[in-house]
Design a binder for these strands. Sequence first.
DNA 1: CGATATTTGATATGGTCCATAACAATTATC
DNA 2: GATAATTGTTATGGACCATATCAAATATCG
Lengths: 177, 177
Amino acid sequence: MTVSKTSEKSSEKTADTAKVRKDAAETQGQGPGEALQLGELSEQLGYVLKRAQLKVFENFLRCMASLQLTPAQFSVLLLVEKNPGRNQTEIASTLGILRPNFVAMLDNLESRDLCARIRSTNDRRSHILVLTDKGKAVLARAKKLVATKHEARLNELLGPSNREALLGMLSKIANEF
Amino acid sequence: MTVSKTSEKSSEKTADTAKVRKDAAETQGQGPGEALQLGELSEQLGYVLKRAQLKVFENFLRCMASLQLTPAQFSVLLLVEKNPGRNQTEIASTLGILRPNFVAMLDNLESRDLCARIRSTNDRRSHILVLTDKGKAVLARAKKLVATKHEARLNELLGPSNREALLGMLSKIANEF
DNA sequence: CGATATTTGATATGGTCCATAACAATTATC
DNA sequence: GATAATTGTTATGGACCATATCAAATATCG
């Protein structure tokens, strides 16, 4: 228990808690029995943005259940495929992942034989990242799942032109905010 | 300074890692010295959405630095103000916050005298949530900061009509995805 | 050249957020 | 009145994020 107050007359409280409790006492049970009013919350960009992002990630995970790929893992595979011969620092930083946190992620992908670290001959400190054949195959299947099950849902919900407009505005926010 | 490839013959392939390592060895140093190619990543809704969300939250925190309010705390205050006389479970659940995790959050707000828990007389299990006078004052200032510094930035970046369209699409995703 | 600084991958660690199980007090149900 | 359900709470573990630190390798500079 934290603060359990047996209500009584407010002794000396100046203006704050005492008055509030009185108001609330008079107000108890006023609310409608059901749904709450979101009010200005539904106009707050951050709120709606976060909710939408959660829903999208949730849907992504469902679509990828058979491949067991998270959004972050998918993004790593995509980026490594598009940029072979890069090291961990480069891949991680362009994804906004800190190098220490990238290690376990790669351990996971490498243990599943989806990608491989290769000691660079030029700079023997760095590990070059490459997709394995299995990694390429899995990524190809992942792309199809995303396109047919995930992004398709978006087109169905917003229409292609709106989807494009949405992506454009989000990119603008992500880059210029 | 984009993509300069020193291409050469691709040799033979057997199975997996062995081949991969050989390919990579031949491929080392191919990448341009500079920026990576995002590729299909910039078309992935989840990716762009997450990045935009991070930027928006980051900006929100900067705008609210003087009031020390996080987006989640702001949303709680907004919802409690709009729906006085509700208990913790109701407020938490409409915000997508699990009851256990809501406790510490309220402890924080209550310790700062921004809101108060009041034992309900109808149901002595539940705590009615109310804003204190200080809470109302802080929330009022917070709203002004958000409107003038945060959301204004959006209008400046996208224009009012686009901002409205963006909110609409995000709401649709958040609710119907 | 050699001493020093920098970079790369890695480990350790702490913080925050999110999710589940369990509990006491209270209320609802039968 | 016995049992089930609800409310706030605690404890706990996992996922994600951030910082400090380290050894190995490289770069820099006297």
